[in-house]
Computed example of a mutant assay.
Amino acid sequence: MAKHLEYGIQGEQLATERLIREGYRIVKRNWKHKHLEVDIIAYDGAVLVFVEVKTRRSLAFGEPSEFVDIHKQRKLIRAADIYLGGCEHIGDIRFDVVSVYLSDIVEITIVKDAFWSN
């Protein structure tokens, strides 16, 4: 397996563990619908959260969360709409981004309400 894929898997596992420690209840990991994917779907209290995980080994090009551009946001919003159409959730939703920086030390940052859907 390519190293960048291994880092991504490691980052998603670390992000999941951190979210659980923060009180999130994980519902799905790597949920897919056609070409759309959500890394983690979880509840934070009563709020259904769609989580994008970004893992990097270097900050040379910026924080990992900065790589969730408008195109990626739109894809996540479409994925959330499809997911919501097939579940019984009624209430608030949120989009979070978890940045995982893998270096000599591991740094994990949760950005709650990282962006909004229209």
Rank of each mutant, 00 (worst) to 15 (best):
M1E: 08
M1C: 13
A2V: 08
K3R: 09
K3Y: 07
H4W: 14
E6Q: 15
Y7E: 04
Y7N: 13
Y7S: 03
Y7A: 05
G8R: 03
G8L: 06
I9F: 13
I9A: 14
I9P: 08
I9N: 12
I9Y: 13
I9R: 15
I9S: 07
Q10D: 03
G11T: 02
G11M: 06
E12N: 01
L14W: 05
L14C: 01
A15E: 02
A15S: 07
A15V: 00
A15F: 05
T16Q: 12
T16I: 06
T16H: 05
T16S: 12
E17V: 00
R18W: 08
L19S: 10
L19M: 07
R21C: 06
R21D: 15
R21P: 00
R21T: 11
E22I: 04
E22R: 08
E22P: 01
G23V: 09
G23D: 09
Y24K: 01
Y24F: 14
Y24E: 07
R25E: 14
I26Y: 11
K28A: 05
K28T: 01
K28F: 13
R29D: 04
N30D: 09
W31G: 05
W31C: 04
W31H: 06
K32I: 03
K32G: 01
K32C: 05
H33P: 02
K34F: 11
K34M: 07
H35I: 01
H35R: 11
L36N: 02
L36T: 05
E37Q: 11
V38N: 03
D39T: 03
I40G: 01
I40A: 02
I41Y: 07
A42W: 08
A42R: 04
A42Q: 04
Y43Q: 10
Y43K: 09
D44Y: 15
G45A: 11
A46C: 08
A46N: 15
A46H: 14
V47K: 15
V47M: 11
L48I: 09
V49D: 04
F50N: 05
F50L: 10
F50G: 03
V51H: 05
V51R: 01
V51F: 04
V51D: 04
V53E: 04
V53A: 02
V53N: 02
K54I: 00
K54P: 00
T55C: 00
T55I: 00
R57D: 08
R57N: 14
L59M: 12
L59D: 06
A60S: 15
A60H: 09
A60Q: 08
F61S: 14
F61A: 11
G62R: 05
E63G: 00
E63S: 06
P64H: 09
P64W: 08
P64I: 06
F67S: 12
F67I: 00
V68R: 01
V68E: 01
V68M: 09
D69I: 07
H71N: 10
K72T: 07
K72V: 10
Q73I: 11
R74E: 13
R74A: 15
L76Y: 14
L76R: 02
L76E: 02
L76W: 05
I77M: 11
I77D: 02
R78W: 11
R78K: 15
A79M: 03
A79P: 11
A79V: 05
A80V: 08
A80D: 03
D81T: 13
D81E: 13
D81C: 12
I82K: 04
I82D: 09
I82R: 00
Y83K: 05
Y83M: 03
L84F: 03
G85D: 13
G86H: 14
C87L: 00
E88A: 15
E88Y: 12
H89M: 10
H89K: 06
